[in-house]
Design a protein around this nucleic acid. Structure first.
Lengths: 155, 155
DNA sequence: CCTACATGCTCTAGTGACTAGAGCTTCAAG
DNA sequence: CTTGAAGCTCTAGTCACTAGAGCATGTAGG
């Protein structure tokens, strides 16, 4: 158990530059180094990286992962904070799904309505050009409801 | 019809810096200027900005919007390109919804399983720490399926 | 021992679609 | 003529990486 960064990458499924990046932002502690200044990882690093990777797959952002790591480091503490974090994230994911679903419906309507004539007749271009033709009159806030947020799972 | 950038912003619902940004990346043409070098917009700009804004709300990325604008500029051309663009975007949105739905299910399971004891017993922390406990064994490619993509609607 | 060549190192910059701020000028009202 | 809002340009920050330059180290074969 004295892995190079490349071995750790293969073991964990996290790319080498990403591991270095995680170290840089403090998600992983600086590992021991070889005589030639190369990183050497033990089993603790393997576990921690697995935790981080899976949390990312679950869509938690880096701040949330930091918090989860803090919580996991105190096994005796009550877990309601972790619970709350996950619940909040769940809500965000649900909100995203809802927005995307409305979006999908509108896109599907547009695409279905297009009958393949000229651009002038094209329902797609008409709807994009005129919000009034759009069935989705969402009047949500112009605030940063935005897309943003952590990206969802990768693998 | 000779709007300042602020008036255009109020009219369109697009923020002032964003309008300037759209000009910078070529989604809007450089407008006329006042004697004091301030932007003045006519009705063509109002329409074009509405098109761009709505396309963004529908989740098209900038490259796609550029293409849609090109297509809309040729009313006699056949519209299958626009149709195809929208259809592809629709597929991407559907894929995103599917990924997020799987994610939501796993998060919901985690949150439901947590019974509020200590961190050591916390199902949330356990699942994050051990992918094996996760019901979602997605074996998708590690490639840029990523989250990324254009963000969905804002308003 | 020497040579390849893979792998490692640090550092900087780019991605997408904005957003925020500094430091300055112009405009409209009173 | 003064005040204050709104305008201008330019740079840098957001998020979670990713890509590349330019160099050092590690390892297998000869």
């Amino acid at each position: 158990m004295n892995l190079t960064i490349g071995q750790l990458a293969r073991e964990s499924g996290v790319k080498v530059p990403t591991i270095r990046f995680y170290e840089q932002i403090g998600l992983l502690p600086p590992p021991a180094r070889s005589e030639g200044n190369q990183r050497r990882y033990g089993s603790a690093a393997v576990e921690r990286l697995a935790f981080v990777r899976h949390a990312r797959q679950l869509g938690f952002d880096v701040e949330a992962i930091r918090e989860l790591l803090r919580l996991a480091a105190h096994p005796e503490a009550p877990c309601h904070d972790a619970d709350a974090l996950a619940a909040r994230h769940l809500q965000e994911v649900e909100a995203r799904i809802e927005r995307l679903t409305r979006l999908r419906d509108e896109l599907a309507r547009m695409v279905a309505a297009c009958e393949g004539g000229t651009a002038a007749e094209c329902r797609v271009l008409q709807v994009v050009g005129d919000h009034g033709l759009c069935a989705v009159h969402s009047n949500a806030s112009p605030s940063p409801l935005a897309g943003g947020g952590p990206s969802e799972a990768r693998g």
